[in-house]
Computed example of a mutant assay.
Amino acid sequence: MNPRRKQRLIAVSGILVLLSGGVGAMLYALNENVDLFYTPSQLVDGLGEDKNKPVVGQRLRIGGMVVKGSVRRDEHSLKVSFDLVDTGPIVTVHYDGILPDLFREGQGIVAQGTLLDATTIEATEVLAKHDENYMPPEVAEAMKGIKHVPPKQTYPAGTSQ
């Protein structure tokens, strides 16, 4: 092989290595920022045909209806916790911050945060729908054809509702 061809081969190989390294780094960064969307039923029962459940510590988004009577506020801070439901299990969301003005019981919301255990989310952001007709596409698809029935849940004596 003559020196000129060898030099071209090295240059092309170097460019391909740099390009594949850049694409790999970009895919890794995107993978770290992916937040999968779940409904409370999907979170507890699993998602898809394989019934894949998120692992503790995973970042995710969850959408559902705020259960009436479930909002509990801390008197000394901005901490609030509430329950979410779609058609089945109830998931508890803990949030430390100011809730959106449109947040209320019986309304659809989307919370983004980290999974603490199988049915508890530590939210970093809570979003409420902005009018009566809007619902995030994922929530609308997950709740299509479902008529919301408030869950029957009893709270232990001495806890606020």
Rank of each mutant, 00 (worst) to 15 (best):
G69A: 07
Q107S: 09
S13F: 10
T154K: 15
M65I: 08
G24F: 11
D35W: 12
T120C: 06
E49L: 10
G145M: 09
P40I: 02
A123H: 12
R73D: 14
D101P: 00
Q42E: 15
P150S: 03
L84K: 02
I121K: 00
L78N: 15
E75I: 05
L78A: 12
L36C: 07
A142E: 14
V80N: 12
R104L: 01
M26Q: 10
H94C: 05
G57T: 08
T87E: 15
L36E: 08
T39Y: 06
M1A: 08
T39N: 08
D117A: 02
Q58L: 04
V71Y: 06
L43P: 03
G69T: 04
S70I: 09
Y95K: 08
Y28P: 00
D50K: 11
K144Q: 12
D96S: 10
K147R: 14
P54K: 00
P156I: 03
E75K: 13
L43F: 09
A123G: 11
S81G: 10
G113D: 04
D101Y: 13
Q161A: 09
I121W: 00
K152H: 13
A11Y: 08
I90C: 02
L99A: 10
I146H: 11
Q153N: 06
A25E: 03
E49C: 01
L84M: 09
V126E: 08
M135G: 09
S77Y: 01
M143W: 15
H76Y: 09
G106M: 09
L30R: 13
N52Y: 08
G108K: 08
A29T: 00
T92A: 05
P3Q: 05
V71Q: 03
I121L: 05
R72L: 10
E125T: 02
L60E: 01
N31P: 09
P54F: 01
I121Y: 06
I62Q: 06
L18W: 01
R104C: 08
V12P: 01
L84N: 00
V126D: 01
G69W: 09
V91L: 07
S13N: 15
H94W: 14
P100H: 10
N33T: 06
G21I: 06
V34A: 02
S13Y: 13
L47S: 02
Q42P: 05
R72Q: 14
E122Q: 15
S41K: 11
V93S: 04
A142T: 14
S20K: 05
I90W: 00
I121T: 05
R72K: 07
T159R: 11
F103W: 00
E132I: 14
L19G: 14
G88I: 09
V93T: 12
K129R: 10
Y38K: 02
K144S: 12
Y134Q: 03
S81P: 04
I121S: 03
R73F: 13
G97L: 13
L127P: 04
L9Q: 14
I146S: 04
